[in-house]
Structures are given as C-alpha cells and as structure tokens.
Design a protein around this nucleic acid. Structure first.
Length: 583
RNA sequence: GCAUCAGUAGCUCAGUGGAUAGAGCAGUGGCCUCCGGAGCCGCGUGCGGAGGUUCGAUUCCUCUCUGAUGCACCA
C-alpha cells in the first residue's frame, strides 16, 4: 500500500506542477502541530527563494487546486507559508480498513530480492553469556526481524568466538585435569560440563599470565588445534558441541535465534588464498615485520592505520578472520548488505576491515557493509554496569531478576495459579529487559535500571503488554478474542477526536517500519507502540465500547481495537518479545 | 596529543532546517452507577557556552567547555 503521506504528496505535486512550481516542493510530513492539522507541507517556504515570491503567495496558489479533493476535510495556507491538511474522515476510515485487510498491514516489501547477512551475538565458546552479550543479541534480533518483515531475505549468524589462544588454554587445562581426555567418547564421562568449562577458562587465562611454561604449552595446543591435529581437533569439536548446546538454550530464553552457528573457525579455510590474492595484486606489503594493507584515505582527518593481515610472528588475527568471513559470506550468500551489530568501540577496526575488503575487491562496490555500533550499559552511577561485588553479571541472573520482579507484582492476584503467574512473569520480564534496551538509540550509552524497566506504568514493555491485555479483555467479553484475525467488522469514519486520533496513529505504521528498517532503529518501533498504546487508552476512556448502543458503531469500535491489537502484536514481535493473554 | 561520538526539564530518554521543543518518572490537583484505576484529565522559566550561514538553527558550520571512547600485530 502507498503511504498516506505519499498519496497526499501526489495530489500536491500535481498542484505545484500546474502552478509552475517544481514538484519536489510538494513534500508532506506528519504535523508537528496536531492542534492545527494532521499533515503539513512546508514546500512553499522552500520554494520562495527559487521563485522570488512570498511563501504565502505560493501556498495560496496551490490551495484552490486541491481544496475540493475528496481526501481532505480541510486544506489551508497559513502564514508564513505552511499548508495545513486535515483528512476527510471517510478517506481515513477507508485507508484503515484497507490496512486491516492487507498483507502485513500494507507495509512495503522494500527489501524484496535482496539478501542481508547480519552478524550479531558474538559469544565465545566455553564462556558464559554475560550482560555484555545482551545488547548485541537484543538489538541484532530486532533488526533481523524488522528487515525480514520488510521483505529482505535475512541470514542471522551468531559468529562464535571459537578459534585461537583461548581454545588452546582450555584444551591444555583439560588435558592436565583429565589425562585420558583424548580417549573418552564424551566429555560428560569425565565430568566436563558447561559449568566446568566456564570455570576452566578464567583460571587458565589467569595462570598463563603468571606461568610461562603453562602459557607455552597453551600456545603449543593452539598451534596443534589450528593445524588440525586429530586429537586436539576432535576434543575441540566436543567442546564446541556442549558449549553451543548451552548457548542455544540461553539465547532461546531471550527469544533470540540464529540461522547460522558459524564461527571464526569457519573462516580459516579462506585465509590462505585471500592473503595470497592480496599479495599478488600488490595490496599487501610488509611493514615492521607484519603484512599490512593501507586503508587510509585522503579525506581522513586522522590517520587511519593500515589493516594488519598477518602478524610479524606469522599468525593471523581478528582482521584476517573478519576479512575471510566476508569472503565466505559473499561466496555463499551474495548479500546486498552485511550488518555488524557490535560494540561501538570496535568502530575503527571495522572501518579498516570494510575499507580493506572494498579496496582488495573482496566485496564489490555495491555491497553495503554496515556497522551498527551499540553503546555501553551503565549502572545508576553512570559507570559500566557491574554486580554489587564489582563482577560481571551473568545473563541468566539478569533475566531471573527481571522475572522475579514481575512475579512479585502479580503473584497476589487470586484468579491466577502460581504456574500461570510464573509463566506470565517470564514473558513480561523479558519484555521489560528488551523494551528497556531497545527504546534507547542503539548507538548511545544508557542507564540500565531494571526496576524502572519493570514498572507497569510509563514508557515500558510491561505497559505496552498491559494495554494489549486490556484490549484482549474487552474482546473476550464480546466473544471476539478468538476472531482477532478473522473479524470482518468495518471501521466507520470517526466521530470523536480520540477515535480519529487512534485511526490516524495506526496509519503511521507503514512509514515507521520503513524508517526503522532503513535506519536500523528499533527504538522507533518502541516509540510508535507507546504512541499507539497511549492513543488506545485515550480512546478507551472516551468511549465505552461494550455499552455502546449503536450496534454498527460498536462493531466499528471493535474492529478498530482489533486492528490496534494486531499492530501492537506485530510491533512487539519486531522487537522480539511476546504478549500474555492476561497479566 | 590527535580523532570519533555525545551534552535537551530535578532524573531517564525522544525529537526536528520551520509554527508554541515533547514523553515517562518523581511532585502535585482532579476523575470510580469504572469494558482491567497497572488507567485517564490537569499543572513545566529546559536544547552546555560563544560566534557564523539562513527569511528561519536545538538541528548545518567554526571555536570552546564537559564527558565517554579509540588511536598497528588482544578480540
């Protein structure tokens, strides 16, 4: 479906054209003065300069040509040159009904035929998920869903940290603790579980810093693994296996799932040819013992250091792996875009990698590489979030805390069993965490305040869900709660302000989703849903739906709140959480 | 030192080359013959500072202050 804004623009464009003005000035936006109008066009003011004419005169030229159009109930020129527009209620109602009947509410498939690889998550094997893994998972998942909804073929890759020195440290430690580790069929036989692995790594890492002999053995183990010594490689595969099983479980608790469970190790086979190509084509040269590719550009204000491909000791490093991963992705998926949802502190690294891959031809010029850098989660003191004892909080604990906080708020309801309360608390708790995170611009640091996020009032996930539950409750009383997707009631032209406002807000969906998609901005979806929730609650208080005596009007009300519910549901799905039926 | 990003109400956050810069929280005053009051309706001296571009700047540019971050072989 065309956006309402575009429909209005088309009409104005003709008028501008007929008056001898350039069509480009017929740009329409949502009104920033809802008390005056619903949509506005500021084009007359922009055009004033080109045509040496007072803006209001231009606007006055346009008005007579569009005044009688059936879309508008009023359109007028206002000093100094605004064109203020109000829609005809019948047109608005028609549009909303069309949305209700359209696939995806009429949202456009802007990504049709294009593939996107989105790289988010980035957990390390054998290390627990902690609070630092929250943002990439939540933001990446939401962007993935928004892109997919917009018609893109999206491939989400967890991109495991599963290669390198850390693996050597773990293998060497396990070898020491369980001399027969290479012979056992499964790690469980030796008592090596995920939680054991999670303890092994930090201990080994600490020890290697003090114990040179151990560090040397760990490097040796790393070397053997990377050369695929069968014993080491098989043990590594077993470690990956139990670790990935555990990671899948944890991500699933977050409502996050990946299409690919690839890792750094999967890029290794592509490295030798890639390095060879860079040398042959003359991009790579030796500098201070390392093999590097220059990526500086003339316009740089600050010198961008060259991208290191091979270290002076002959080993590869993260740039090498990231580049080889691009080689692999281009070869396997031919993506139009690759999006990285990564800590914003890695911006320089990715800038180098992106430039290097363009320069050396790993990606063609029309493949877009996006860096979606997210900011730090801070505590109430404005400093990076820590547990009380200064440690790093595990993700499970965080989710548990949120769930418990919600549970406390609903547990005393007498019409709910404990089991039901617990499962509701889980759903609502997740909404609190996700909405709390996603409602901030991804790129900014933000204050993580779980108590605030878990509030049922204000701009929170639970408030959105509360609104949905409230709609559901009305529908239940009207025996329509099972007909949400099949109800054929029609929405009538609005007669009250609040009804009209809700209809109007619902139409904004198409524009908002498109913006959120193009800008990788889930927070715009949050804002939109909050807007809808507020509009619904205003409508609810001005109109008693169940007691409405005019039955046609009542059906229209019901159709309207059903559409509001469906759109809210779609919206929270784009954010990556669900709604309970009651709460 | 250089660079990047940020600075909006007491607090947490939106927003925009245009009209009177918005929400939530906190505070405070109303609204229950109420479909879920976890709600609704009120109440605000705020764009770090100084210049510039513009008919118009919180938005763009320069300088400046403050904070976060990054500056080749860790990821």
């Amino acid at each position: 479906m065309k956006k309402i804004i575009n429909l209005i623009e088309e009409i104005l464009a003709d008028a501008f054209d007929n008056c001898g003005y350039d069509k480009k000035y017929a740009k329409v936006t949502l009104s920033n003065r809802p008390d005056l109008c619903e949509f506005q066009c500021n084009g007359a003011m922009s055009a004033a300069k080109e045509y040496h004419k007072a803006p209001i005169m231009i606007a006055n030229d346009i008005i007579p040509l569009v005044k009688e159009h059936s879309y508008f109930s009023s359109i007028e020129a206002v000093n100094p040159g605004f064109i203020n527009i109000k829609l005809n209620p019948a047109f608005l109602a028609d549009y909303v009904n069309d949305m209700a009947n359209a696939d995806k509410f009429g949202c456009t498939d802007i990504g049709e035929g294009k593939t996107i690889v989105i790289d988010y998550g980035g957990p390390n094997v054998a290390k627990p998920l902690h609070i630092g893994h929250l943002r990439p998972a939540i933001i990446g998942e939401s962007i993935k869903r928004i892109k997919r909804f917009s018609g893109y073929n999206v491939i989400g890759d967890v991109h495991l940290g599963d290669w390198g020195y850390q693996m050597g440290l773990i293998i060497e430690s396990l070898k020491e603790q369980h001399p027969d580790i290479f012979e056992t069929a499964s790690l469980e036989e030796c008592g090596v579980t995920v939680s054991v692995l999670e303890e092994v790594y930090p201990a080994a890492s600490k020890r290697a810093k003090e114990d040179e002999e151990f560090a040397a053995r760990a490097h040796e183990a790393t070397y053997k693994l990377q050369n695929k010594n069968p014993e080491y490689y098989n043990l590594w595969k077993k470690i990956i296996d139990i670790s990935v099983t555990d990671l899948k479980k944890n991500y699933s608790n977050l409502n996050v799932d990946f299409d690919l469970w690839m890792g750094e190790s999967d890029a290794q086979p592509y490295i030798p040819d890639m390095v060879e190509m860079m040398k042959e084509k003359g991009f790579a040269y030796e500098s201070n013992g390392a093999l590097v590719v220059d990526v500086a550009e003339e316009t740089d204000k600050k010198e961008v250091p060259p991208c290191i491909i091979v270290k002076s000791d002959g080993a590869y490093l993260y740039s090498t792996t990231d580049l080889a991963t691009i080689v692999q992705r281009v070869q396997d998926y031919k993506p139009a875009q690759i999006i990285y949802v990564v800590d914003k502190r890695q911006e320089m690294h990715f800038k180098q990698v992106f430039r290097c891959s363009k320069k050396t031809g790993i990606v063609s010029g029309d493949t877009e590489l996006f860096f979606v850098g997210f900011g730090t989660m801070n505590g109430a003191d404005g400093k990076p979030f820590k547990t009380r004892d200064g440690g790093v909080m595990r993700l499970e604990k965080l989710i548990g805390d949120a769930t418990a906080s919600i549970y406390d708020k609903i547990k005393d309801r007498d019409d709910m069993t404990e089991d039901e309360a617990a499962s509701i608390a889980k759903i609502v708790g997740l909404s609190a965490i996700k909405y709390g995170d996603l409602s901030n611009q991804a790129s900014k640091d933000y204050i993580f305040d779980i108590d605030r996020f878990c509030e049922f009032e204000g701009n929170t996930g639970p408030y959105i869900l509360y609104t949905m539950v409230r709609i559901k409750s009305i529908l239940r009383k009207c025996q329509l709660d099972n007909a949400i997707d099949s109800c054929d009631y029609k929405i009538l032209p609005a007669v009250s302000d609040s009804e009209r406002d809700l209809q109007l807000k619902l139409t904004n969906l198409i524009e908002l989703v498109e913006q959120a998609c193009n800008e990788n901005a889930p927070h715009k979806i949050c804002q939109y849903l909050y807007d809808i929730a507020n509009s619904f609650n205003g409508f609810y208080h001005q109109n008693n739906i169940i007691k409405e005596e005019d039955k046609e009007r009542q059906k229209s009300f019901l159709a309207l709140i059903i559409l509001a519910y469906r759109i809210l549901k779609q919206g929270i799905d784009l954010l990556g959480f669900d709604a309970p039926d009651r709460m």
